[in-house]
Write a protein that binds this DNA or RNA. Structure first.
Lengths: 149, 149
DNA sequence: TAAGATTGATTCGTCAATCTTT
DNA sequence: AAAGATTGACGAATCAATCTTA
């Protein structure tokens, strides 16, 4: 407060970058008529169907929260519950055709939005940034959020 | 899908880094008995009191959302509404003493959590990462989220 | 017109308790 | 008993639309 300001530190820019990513999610998902939480949820299902417990681990939410989000997405025709052949207690949640359309479109548009955030960087700078950020995410066991494949 | 996997791209690691930052907010704010949204809200008020419209712009939320969050924080004794001397319609929202304690504590702990995300990087790497991320945030008019002073 | 506040509806998220299957 | 999942109750977040007042 008596100190001169100086440039914002790493923590601050990390928080602000997260804010930009969140805003991208919010804006794009709204265009698809779903909430950011639903978009995040559908994104996790893109590679393959998941059990509820698996979704709990990946999304970091309470069990009942996941159940509620599955219910909502199912009501909207975006996901389907299937019985797990191996365990009759378990359920596997997978995208419907409509759900895949929304998930893929949302994924593509969100990716584009986020790519544009670094539009002013050179290819080398982007590679450096990606490598350093990857170190951060690798060191902190991020679950398979935003899976590419 | 026929392609070999390769390392995750910049977009993916940005999303995952945002996920880590969000998780830090969620965990820390819970320790202080408030929601992540309230923590974000209080953080914005740390440097100075703000009008409702200003909060709408900074937080990117609807007016009624901000009013509701002010109401809740006020009920919890964390903020206070004051009359704007310049505009008799306007209200200025500022932290109470209790609110400042919570906001500062939350800020400190969240900062510490986020600092630790890059614990494995060298000082040079952190500086490089901060500089590149700062380019990203500067180019995308992030509002004064997580102000340091 | 602009700043706030309010209302009503939906979703998000948690916890505690319950049910079924293993 | 333990695991997977759901239900019910509740607080909080969010928006659109409306209302009040300056």
């Amino acid at each position: 407060v008596g100190k001169s300001e100086g440039p914002p530190g790493l923590t601050t820019v990390l928080v602000r970058a997260a804010f930009l990513v969140n805003a991208a999610y919010t804006d794009v998902s709204r265009q698809y008529g779903i909430s950011p939480a639903q978009a995040q949820f559908l994104a996790v299902l893109r590679p393959r169907a998941r059990g509820t417990s698996e979704l709990v681990a990946v999304l970091g939410l309470a069990k009942s929260t996941v159940t509620g989000m599955v219910n909502l997405a199912e009501r909207n025709g975006l996901v389907r519950r299937e019985a797990d052949p191996a365990d009759s207690r378990a359920v596997r949640v997978g995208l419907t055709a409509a759900g895949r359309t929304v998930a893929d479109g949302c994924f593509t548009d969100t990716s584009r939005r986020i790519e544009q955030l670094s539009a002013s960087l050179t290819a080398d700078e982007r590679a450096t940034l990606a490598a350093l950020l990857r170190r951060v995410t690798d060191d902190n066991q991020v679950s398979a959020i935003f899976p590419e494949a």
